[in-house]
Amino acid sequence: MDAMTSFSYIYIVTICVGLLSAEAEITVSGQVGSTAVLPCELQRVGTEIQHIRWITESETVFERLGEESYQAEGYEDRVDVPEEELHKRSCSLVLHNLPLTDAGVYTSYQTVRRSKSSASVKTKRDLISRVKLSVQEKPPEKRTEIPTDDAGMKCPHPPIMVLSLISCLLLQFFFA
């Protein structure tokens, strides 16, 4: 086997392993104005304060470190990872009142502090999940049409027609 063939096999195996080890991307969809929950489950929960970060390609959308939280501009009062859910291993991001601009890929990370010795503390950012959010327009509301006759004139509903007819007959009876 020559060097080029050997290199080709290594390259193909590397691509295959990379594809197999890639984090699966979950898809979630919602309509404009609705609420979406981007799923996330912690692999490990320690005694330390949980540090969760949700990002898109362009910005950090939400970050929680214990009771403290950060919401990016445009996401204020619309996003949260409830602290009480973290104790149940859920780090799902809740997005309220979805606009079309929320669509995109969201990635969650857990920052873990690792202590090698009493003198050195290192932090590591572990990928938890990737979620693709799609947001659709609300379907147009169905309008109830008023029945029209062949000439395109609007016809009143039958009970209104009957009441109108009775009123006319009574008026003629009393004034005739």
Rank of each mutant, 00 (worst) to 15 (best):
K132A: 05
M153A: 10
D102W: 06
L165C: 07
H87Q: 11
V28P: 01
K122G: 06
Q110I: 09
Y9H: 06
Y11F: 14
D77I: 08
V32F: 04
K122C: 01
D2L: 10
E141P: 11
Y9T: 10
Y106G: 10
T101L: 05
L95D: 03
S21H: 07
L38A: 01
A24W: 09
I26S: 08
Y75W: 13
P159E: 02
L93G: 05
R113P: 04
E76L: 14
K138Q: 15
Y11D: 04
R143V: 13
L127N: 04
A103H: 02
I166A: 15
H157D: 05
S120G: 01
Y11L: 15
K154D: 04
S134T: 14
E85L: 10
V81T: 05
T101R: 03
S34Y: 08
P140Q: 10
T107E: 13
S34E: 14
R114C: 06
Q31C: 04
Y9K: 12
E59Y: 01
V45L: 15
I26A: 04
E25C: 03
E59S: 13
A103P: 11
I55C: 00
I26P: 02
I160H: 12
G18D: 08
K132W: 00
L93D: 10
E137F: 07
T5R: 13
T101I: 00
L171D: 07
R130N: 09
P156F: 02
S34D: 11
W54P: 14
Y109T: 11
V61I: 15
R64K: 07
E83Y: 11
F62V: 08
S167N: 13
C16P: 05
V13N: 09
G152C: 03
F174D: 01
V162D: 02
D150L: 07
R125T: 12
S115T: 14
L42P: 12
M1W: 04
G152F: 04
